[in-house]
């Protein structure tokens, strides 16, 4: 191997390392789980973090039918107009999150865990990739 090829090889290595380091400096957009729903119909106005519904977690335990046929959840992010009054009456989330099937409503921070100001949206939906981001991704956080 000649010295010139050796030199150019190390230049590529240096370039690679720089690029690798630079990748960490670039702020990352949101990369939450496919199917996560942020529900912010009333939360921000009520001074609490928006609720995040993880579809993946629930579909491991229940089939779609349980919520979308039996409990009457519409197939639309934010389309069910859920509020805490309905939940404590045993409707929507409250059908299970009542301390009998799943943990009860006093665990506020488990659902209301979204970044404040995040609008209601379906994370990773095709519609988002078609038009424009439906929400502003986190910057520098």
């Amino acid at each position: 191997m000649s010295s010139s090829t050796k030199h150019s090889k190390w230049r590529y290595v240096l370039l690679g390392v720089t690029a690798w380091l630079a990748a960490f400096m670039i702020p990352q957009a949101a990369h939450a789980e496919y199917g996560d729903v942020v529900i912010n119909n009333y939360a921000d106005a009520a001074g609490i973090r928006p609720a995040v519904f993880p579809h993946w977690f629930h579909r491991i335990r229940f089939r779609c039918k349980v919520c979308h046929a039996d409990l009457g959840f519409q197939f639309k992010a934010g389309g069910n107009k859920i509020d805490m009054a309905k939940i404590i009456d045993g409707k929507f989330c409250g059908a299970c999150h009542n301390g009998e099937v799943a943990w009860s409503v006093e665990n506020c921070a488990m659902c209301h865990s979204g970044v404040p100001g995040t609008p209601t949206h379906f994370h990773g939906s095709t519609v988002q990739s078609l038009i424009a981001p439906a929400y502003k991704p986190l910057e520098g956080k």
């Binding site: 990748a23 990369h31 939450a32 789980e33 996560d36 942020v38 995040v52 209301h112 865990s113 970044v115």
Partner: peptide, 29 residues
């Protein structure tokens, strides 16, 4: 870059919320 990120790093959960750290990371499930 990050597939199935745990909730505190996924960009929609608030890392300042203590409840976020109780949630199960998807990869575990």
């Amino acid at each position: 870059k990050v597939k199935n990120a745990p909730p505190p790093e996924d960009g929609i959960h608030d890392p300042e919320n203590e409840g976020t750290y109780v949630l199960q990371p998807p990869l575990e499930a």
